[in-house]
Design a protein around this nucleic acid. Structure first.
Lengths: 210, 210
DNA sequence: GTCTATAAGCAGATAGAC
DNA sequence: GTCTATCTGCTTATAGAC
């Protein structure tokens, strides 16, 4: 009887928030970023989203794995619009590269958001999500190399520099997080455009066409 | 009575392996690398070392945290001898840089060993281990910058390039792990020496003296 | 679509025999 | 210094009311 009363009250005073799915995914991502995949327990994810555990399972029947997958899908499309799309847009190459770095800054919350490879590429999560992450890296690399090609670099050089840029971005996120210094990421982004289309062979390696 | 018998047999047929502490730490590190800090349960660590759970707690009274700390301390001293020491040794700067990259290749098992920042910089582990990781990065950066200074670069430029090198190394590990491509790490190491002491301003940023 | 309550099992950690 | 056995709490996941 008392249970009945409580349920009744709850339905009146808490009229089912129903926050949009996008918002739920944002909060899940935030929780994953803070605790890592393994460290983000269902309880924490429940807290982070404001949804009860059972509600989470209602939306993501596959449990935590499905939550992470949904988060990755959303992140992927956000990455596409913030980072890849500006690369594909018209205009001067260097200008497109600047648009890309601006998008990267947004996507990674100016360096505060840790790199997704770090979060979902390790341990239990790794096996499952690595193909998706690998695909994203590949798309990024190709889009970036295409711009560098338009800027006049030969194909091998463009591919090599694109790869190095991705390495620098991910490295800056990891190092910045470890040192608690956001400026590492900011500086890395600032130098990218000039470094990418600039003269000389920086970080040139025997690029393997893949 | 049957328990008594079993214990007796065990003491005879399994005469306390007593593997050296160094070996135990190596196996713990391997387990942490495979599963991440949170994902490496005591059961798994027990399996990995061949020691029973209670034995692990006998050696590391602080539990998993102390195991990780011991692993980090061992890794730190190994990093010092494999990577930092070659930088401090005499000889031509470029030669010392080559010795460093050789040491890095060893330390990271030619790219297979994931970066420790990734393993111990996230989630529950993060708060505890970040100071240690931060210190290691700092020492590495200083040792590297000193060599670049001897090679003729001014202080700001040396500091900037040293930082970029560390970023590239960590980034290559992360990207290489995500893509399952070890060659990323190898290529990055190969290019480092030339890229570090070479001409031109690559990846030059407003280096902040810290 | 949200909740409460609960199941089943694994986590980290300890007691105590030998 | 190793083990077996065990404890407590938290984990993922589900059942079922509303």
């Amino acid at each position: 009887m008392i249970d009945l009363y409580r349920s009744f009250v709850m339905m009146i005073v808490m009229p089912a928030p129903i926050i949009p799915r996008e918002e739920v995914l944002d909060r899940l991502l935030a929780a994953f970023r803070e605790h890592g995949y393994d460290g983000a327990s269902i309880s924490r994810l429940s807290e982070a989203t404001g949804l009860g555990k059972a509600s989470l399972y209602h939306h993501f029947k596959g449990g935590k794995q499905e939550m992470a997958e949904a988060v990755l899908i959303q992140s992927g499309s956000r990455f596409s619009s913030l980072v890849i799309a500006p690369l594909r847009g018209g205009g001067e190459p260097r200008r497109r590269l600047r648009a890309m770095t601006a998008g990267l800054s947004d996507f990674y919350a100016r360096g505060q958001g840790s790199c997704l490879l770090e979060l979902f590429g390790i341990g239990a999560a790794g096996e499952r999500f690595r193909p998706r992450l690998k695909g994203a890296i590949h798309r990024f690399r190709n889009a970036l190399a295409a711009v560098l090609g338009e800027a006049g670099l030969d194909q091998a050089e463009a591919a090599s520099r694109a790869e190095n840029a991705i390495i620098a971005i991910q490295g800056a996120l990891v190092v910045g997080r470890a040192t608690g210094d956001q400026s590492v990421f900011r500086r890395t982004l600032e130098c990218l455009p000039d470094s990418l289309v600039g003269p000389g062979q920086q970080r040139v390696g025997p690029a393997e066409a893949k």
